[in-house]
Design a protein around this nucleic acid. Structure first.
Lengths: 358, 358
DNA sequence: CAGTCTTCGGAGAACGTTTGCCATGGAAGG
DNA sequence: CCTTCCATGGCAAACGTTCTCCGAAGACTG
């Protein structure tokens, strides 16, 4: 029952291979009686079309390549899940490649995927500059969309969250909560989100305090840096000089900051508020839970999937599209004056949680 | 430069297609001069072999399918990464399918992958019973290895951590730390790890306290259940009756338990110790950091990859292999009497951390 | 020097599809 | 009744490889 081919079906149903193919693909009308015989034979023999042969003939594998920097980055699993859902719904399979934040490895994986004749690529570039040439070369061969991170202007279509809008949400919220001495804890890294979030902070924070835009500490997108940043900020300044809100460039930094703040005995959010970005599962698990900006992950994935179809390969000359999706603020315990942060929550077991089973 | 075929190379180097194929595959000796001409032409034209055609002819796609229950389960990203590394090192590509914990979807993905002619499958089954038939059917067609979770006996080769050994490590450690009133917080779920860890606890805990094996609370593998379990245990019993160690079936439960214990004002580890299982990144991030059992993730992945090669498809009749790898205990702050749990750690920024950047 | 190997190269048949083109036959139109 | 046309079905050529034959040498052996 393993290897039934079109040929077998043709023989069993007493017609030619072409006819069977046409019945299955519906590419041309076929007589009702014949079609019925064919379908019956397909059923009886348990015929399954061979995608490899189909791909060879039709020059389309129905496969798309997904290249990402680090699947262990807690923001990506949900993105990967949504993307695979969107693509599987469309009968496309996903070839996964993790490049461990290394642009060299990334280039290797991209060309390996091209060799495997993927129909298109979704790339989350590892490095804003160093990923450019490989991405540009690939984009010249197949439809390619950059997801989550950019890679310089005009390289390829891209889909990402509107970082500036997200940061604005945070700043508005903090302003409404009466915070005035903000400090940004960001990343100097090579991902485009790093720069965008930072400039959005610098542009928006001035409205609250002319000096706020200048209070910027840069490290990387890690928990460790969150801790280190707090160490630096808290030891450098007298109590009166300290910020009353830490605006972190992502949730990992926020969690690290929160951890150290608690260890130093600071009251969050009474004394200082902390905000994150992305809304990874960890943000809700921290104590206090982190106010953050939720990325519209499912929509980002769907948009990326949509973009791959709409580019008929020939129309390559068209301008690159850059789609930005609006995020939404998720207010949790780490901001807001009116709170007793470390007391048991009012409804202990009934609020929705991010869960997971193994 | 896009579509150079063997034929083009043959023409450019003045020999036949077969010869070119042979010099590239090394399948038969070829004269030195000819080989050089061929290689030169390959270089000049930028020839890249077409994997689809190769797959059709050689009946091997060099692709393996990876089917998992939920990529968002925090234990899986590292496993996926290690597995892709191991397979990519071997020139195999990985088709990813996430089945959202649904055995129906899982069956669908498995057969979709088979239709795409994957050379082999790695499956982390979603359900111990309901996944069986689909897995068994697939195992009859291609090499298949079950990873992390089982799926009933004799269905396919499997690779997993030795849960019993891991639990023994935990119990020994707790005994050494002088803990006597243990309580197991586990999962009643459908994953094989749930049952194995529980029976290992029941088997081993009696040595410390004849009543310990009886103290078992079952929920699921989630943070929420960890919280709920603590609520139940703490409210049900007077202070003197409470356990001095919570043995959790995985890290998520442990983190939830820890969170609620802190909210209830319990001293961890002074009053009660907490242990986890798996060593997901979150375990080190919790406060206090969770003592847990580290799964040998890279080795599990490597072993799975190795198992896929060694089965020459014909030898299907051989007995199923079940490989169990020994885990290792990672002692952190959540156990051990001698500790002031909530004080700043001595060397704040210098200990190794699990990091991650976006 | 004739015969038998060995070595290298080419022709061509697969692999399982899709699809362009032709053949047949009956219906419709003159 | 003869054309013209659909509607249907089959043949065969791709798609880009790999691999089995075969043949033509040259290298040995007796």
């Amino acid at each position: 029952m393993a290897d039934v081919t079109l040929h077998d079906v043709a023989r069993a149903s007493g017609c030619s291979v072409s006819t069977v193919s046409r019945v299955l693909a519906g590419s041309r009308p076929v007589g009702a009686a014949t079609a019925a015989r064919v379908r019956q034979a397909v059923e009886d023999l348990g015929y399954r079309p061979n995608h490899v042969a189909r791909a060879l003939r039709s020059r389309s594998t129905g496969t798309i390549g997904l290249v990402l920097p680090q699947i262990t980055n807690p923001f990506y699993p949900t993105l990967v899940r949504e993307l695979t859902y969107a693509l599987h719904a469309d009968e496309r399979a996903v070839l996964l490649a993790d490049c461990d934040d290394d642009p060299k490895a990334e280039a290797g994986h991209i060309s390996a995927l091209l060799d495997r004749q993927v129909d298109a690529l979704v790339v989350i570039p590892a490095h804003e500059q160093h990923s450019r040439t490989a991405v540009a070369a690939a984009a010249a061969r197949v439809p390619l969309v950059l997801l989550d991170r950019g890679c310089g202007p005009g390289v390829a279509d891209s889909v990402a969250v509107d970082n500036a809008a997200g940061m604005a949400l945070v700043l508005d919220h903090l302003a409404a909560e009466g915070r005035r001495r903000l400090c940004f804890v960001g990343a100097s890294g090579t991902a485009s989100a790093a720069a965008e979030r930072r400039t959005a902070y610098e542009a928006g924070a001035g409205a609250l305090d002319p000096e706020a835009p200048g209070r910027v500490a840069l490290g990387d997108f890690s928990v460790a840096w969150g801790r280190a940043a707090v160490d630096r900020i808290w030891t450098e300044r007298a109590a009166a000089q300290r910020p009353d809100a830490l605006v972190c460039a992502n949730d990992l930094i926020a969690v690290g900051a929160l951890q150290r703040l608690r260890q130093l005995g600071a009251d969050v959010p009474g004394e200082v508020a902390v905000t994150g970005f992305d809304d990874i599962p960890l943000a809700d698990l921290a104590d206090p839970a982190v106010t953050t900006v939720r990325q519209p992950v499912a929509e980002l994935a769907a948009e990326a999937a949509r973009l791959l179809d709409r580019r008929p390969v020939s129309e390559q000359a068209g301008p690159r599209r850059s789609i930005r999706l609006a995020p939404r603020l998720v207010v949790r315990a780490s901001t807001g004056r009116s709170s007793a942060s470390h007391t048991p929550k009012s409804a202990p077991a009934t609020r929705p949680e991010t869960e997971s089973a193994q």
